[in-house]
Structure formats: structure tokens, C-alpha cells
Computed example of a mutant assay.
Amino acid sequence: MVWQLGELIQACLIAWMAALAAVVAMKLFSGRISLNGILAATPNGGFDPTRVQSALIFLFIIGGYALQGLDAVATRGPMPEIPETLLVLLTGSNGVYLTGKIVRHRMAG
């Protein structure tokens, strides 16, 4: 009985995440969510390399973990632990982004 409840909750969570992803995708494609200026550092549209590296590292980490998760699903095993190297990479990436943001703020003010 508990196993069936767990499978039901898992199916509901997967459906919820799929619905959420579909809504975001629809809003992106319809233009209701704008990506204009997502890589800009300033209101006038200056390019920010720290945002680019942060976005690329994030996508790399999410992709790597998703592949590990797909392997776990295929073998019906538990979700994998997040490797320490990915956490260090994400922490470093966020540190670089925040440092750039602080430096830009201090230089502007």
C-alpha cells in the first residue's frame, strides 16, 4: 500500500513539473515572458560575461544531473546524489557572478 502511494505521488509530481514546464514554454513562445536583456548587465543593455558563464554553468549542471537521473529511472534506482564537484562548480559560478555584480555596483555608485 505504501509503495503504491509513493508511485502515485511520484506520478503526480512528474505531471505537475511537466505542466509547469509546458506553461513556461508556452509563455516564452508567445512572448509573454521576455528574454530581452537577460544577459545585459546594465539597463542600457551592456553585455555581462558573468551572466553568460553563470547561465552556461547552470545549464551544464542541470544537464549532467538530468542524465544521471534518467539513468536512475532506467534502472529503477533512487535519484542520484548531487556530486560534490557539481556543487563546487555551481558555488564558484555563483561567486563569480555575485562578485561581478558587487564590483559593477560599486563602480557605478
Rank of each mutant, 00 (worst) to 15 (best):
M1L: 12
M1Y: 13
W3A: 15
Q4V: 05
L5D: 13
L5R: 13
G6E: 10
G6P: 00
G6Y: 09
E7D: 12
L8H: 09
I9Q: 09
I9K: 10
Q10G: 12
Q10Y: 14
A11G: 11
C12R: 14
C12P: 02
I14A: 14
I14Y: 14
A15C: 10
A15P: 02
W16M: 13
M17E: 14
A18P: 00
A18K: 10
L20V: 07
A21Y: 05
A22Y: 04
A22I: 08
V23F: 09
V23I: 15
V24H: 01
M26H: 06
K27A: 15
L28F: 05
F29A: 08
S30P: 01
R32V: 02
I33N: 00
S34R: 05
L35S: 05
L35A: 08
L35I: 08
N36W: 07
N36G: 11
I38F: 10
I38T: 09
A41P: 00
T42E: 07
T42K: 08
T42L: 06
N44D: 15
N44W: 07
N44L: 11
D48T: 02
T50Q: 04
T50R: 03
V52M: 03
Q53H: 09
Q53M: 09
S54M: 08
A55F: 13
L56E: 07
I57C: 01
F60L: 11
F60T: 05
I62T: 09
I62A: 13
G63R: 01
A66V: 09
L67G: 01
Q68E: 15
G69D: 04
L70P: 00
D71S: 15
A72W: 01
A74W: 12
R76F: 13
G77H: 06
G77N: 07
G77R: 03
P80I: 01
E81F: 12
I82R: 01
P83E: 00
T85Q: 12
L86W: 06
L89E: 00
G92D: 04
G95Y: 04
G95E: 00
V96N: 04
V96Y: 03
Y97F: 15
L98F: 08
T99H: 06
T99Y: 13
T99G: 09
T99R: 04
G100K: 02
K101E: 04
K101M: 11
I102K: 02
V103R: 14
V103E: 05
R104C: 00
H105R: 15
H105Y: 15
A108Q: 11
G109E: 06
